[in-house]
Design a protein around this nucleic acid. Structure first.
Lengths: 336, 336
DNA sequence: CTGAAAGCGCTTACAG
DNA sequence: CTGAAAGCGCTTACAG
């Protein structure tokens, strides 16, 4: 079987206590014995049993990643991979392992958040893709488990979050359209089960207000972030408000849906209507016309979420961490 | 602290032994005591400590997912999410948790495969995205850890694999082009560090042979599956062999690169040249012209990998599992 | 049908 | 600087 601390102790002629201390870098071991033990451990190809250690220390050096909506109906989460890669990179430094939990909101048996985390004794968790109506939200508001949320504003003793500055980003996107001369600007927003939707609406309103453009309820519509959602909303909006010359979207997928709808209606983009998205997914640079959009630094969001979680686990105070965004100007919006 | 088996024993007035057996469904417990214990466990909101159990049973009910190349230079793994979603679904039934290991081949300290798995005592692992030259390959050939590979043919006492029938798929794609009247058919293949590349080349050759079309070395080129790779290969191939009227590709990304290159060279697709890809990634149905390609059922590949791993863990014999593919005909190839 | 005891591989007061 | 012992929360022969 696998070699244990006991085997090393026998070979070295010391107690397991000493082996444990030597290997864990405690100061109260003579250099001589430490060296001997280390050498033997290496020769025996010893690898500590993290399970056993976890049982006694009550720390597993493992964090959970709880992700909802990995598969939305008809589409995979468009930038989960970037967030995931960032998280892995952020965890690597401190050698935390990652357990992936995918929650399916349509499923019957949803394990409560605390149970989910406690079953594997994760030291903390990152939570992504949750809707505001998800029952986990209420649990997380009162949890004792170190948690970092992505794009959901909850802050308490153990819970922090990271996100872009959505108000500012939407403000910039809308202001850009205004600067191009647009006055009748539609906004196809995400569903109102996402915190970012409200923040983006606020930024949109702010830009109108600052430029003395009256806000009109009929220019704003909530939908589900998907391409089909954008397609349908665009048709309806343009049909009912033909004076609209530009549409801002809360996701690139919706913007691409609008692009298709415009094409099908015989409208040219950007000549007849300007389109701006949000996210800067890979597809947005590949389509024609290239999509003007807000780039979110998803890798960085994941990275910082991981770093922040580690710091909370170590006892630091949770915060809201803002990741910079950027307006990416391509060809889908133009001056009028 | 969390409630343990000991607490339940105390409340129920029985020994921990009995509690353990009652909760684990052993037959040798009276129905009466079992009911009592179950009720108390429920009331106390007991949740077993899987760490402690793992220490004694030497089973963690956890599997690893080892993925290389999660981020290739300049691009994220295009269908990892589908595979992942399939794996999670396949694991759900048997309640296995998933630990995600991303290996970065460029990194210095690559933990040996067995050590990676043993550190967390996973019961088995699924391996995806490995190159043939990866040192893990040799390790896996001799491992005792239940393992299922995706797209890498290794079979032994504990190791099985799942893949599409790449020979047959490439055969079908090439035959389709031949049926359209093409005789000078290029093949932009993946790098020769992937098993699938050899299999697809074999299928390509087979189709030519069957139709009495001589195979020409200069019509075949190996590259790295990426869009840039396709772009450059296409330019070179068409420049040196202007008689080519159709090009088959080992990935959609490369096919899309060729599409771009053709455009830049003033060639129309499919009028001047026919293009066929492999994978059927999401993008392929969205671009113009829609890409004719081979669809791989990635979700299913992931799902079956998980199911097969569970069966190997339970002692069944590893196999090669073939997941059906399908030729998806869109607009990028036409009759001449 | 039930319980006392040993043990999984570690860590950590405590004593020397 | 070192070791004996207790204990983390479970499971599992073994005995009754």
């Amino acid at each position: 079987m696998a070699v244990t601390i006991k085997d090393i102790a026998k070979y070295a002629g010391v107690s397991v206590t000493t082996v444990s201390r030597a290997l864990n870098g405690y100061p109260d071991v003579s250099e001589e014995t430490r060296e001997k033990i280390k050498k033997i451990a290496e020769e025996l190809n010893y690898s500590p049993n993290s399970i056993a250690r976890g049982l006694v220390t009550n720390r597993t050096h493992t964090v959970g990643l709880v992700v909802s909506e990995l598969i939305k109906p008809g589409a995979y989460h468009p930038f989960f991979l970037e967030i995931l890669a960032g998280i892995k990179a952020g965890l690597r430094k401190d050698k935390y392992d990652l357990i992936l939990y995918t929650v399916d909101p349509t499923s019957q048996d949803v394990t409560p958040y605390e149970k989910l985390c406690n079953d594997r004794k994760v030291d903390g968790a990152i939570v992504e893709g949750l809707k505001l109506s998800d029952p986990y939200i209420e649990e997380i508001k009162n949890t004792e488990i170190p948690t970092v949320l992505i794009d959901i504003p909850i802050l308490n003793d153990k819970v922090g979050y990271v996100s872009s500055d959505n108000v500012q980003a939407a403000f910039e996107a809308t202001s850009y359209l205004i600067k191009l001369g647009h006055k009748n600007i539609g906004f196809i927003n995400g569903h109102n089960d996402a915190a970012v939707s409200f923040e983006r609406l606020e930024g949109y309103k702010k830009a109108l207000y600052k430029n003395n453009i009256p806000y009109k309820d009929e220019y704003v519509v909530f939908d589900d972030f998907t391409q089909d959602g954008g397609y349908n909303c665009f048709r309806k909006m343009i049909f009912e408000n033909p004076e609209i010359t530009a549409v801002f979207h809360a996701s690139d997928l919706m913007a691409i849906g609008s692009l298709k709808a415009a094409q099908d209606l015989g409208m040219r983009v950007p000549d007849d209507v300007s389109i701006v998205g949000f996210d800067d997914i890979e597809l947005s640079s590949l389509i024609t016309p290239g999509l003007t959009t807000i780039r979110q630094e998803n890798y960085k969001i994941g990275y910082m979420a991981a770093r922040h979680l580690v710091s909370i686990i170590k006892g630091e105070k949770p915060r809201h961490i803002i990741i910079p965004h950027r307006l990416i100007i391509r060809q889908s919006a133009k001056k009028i």
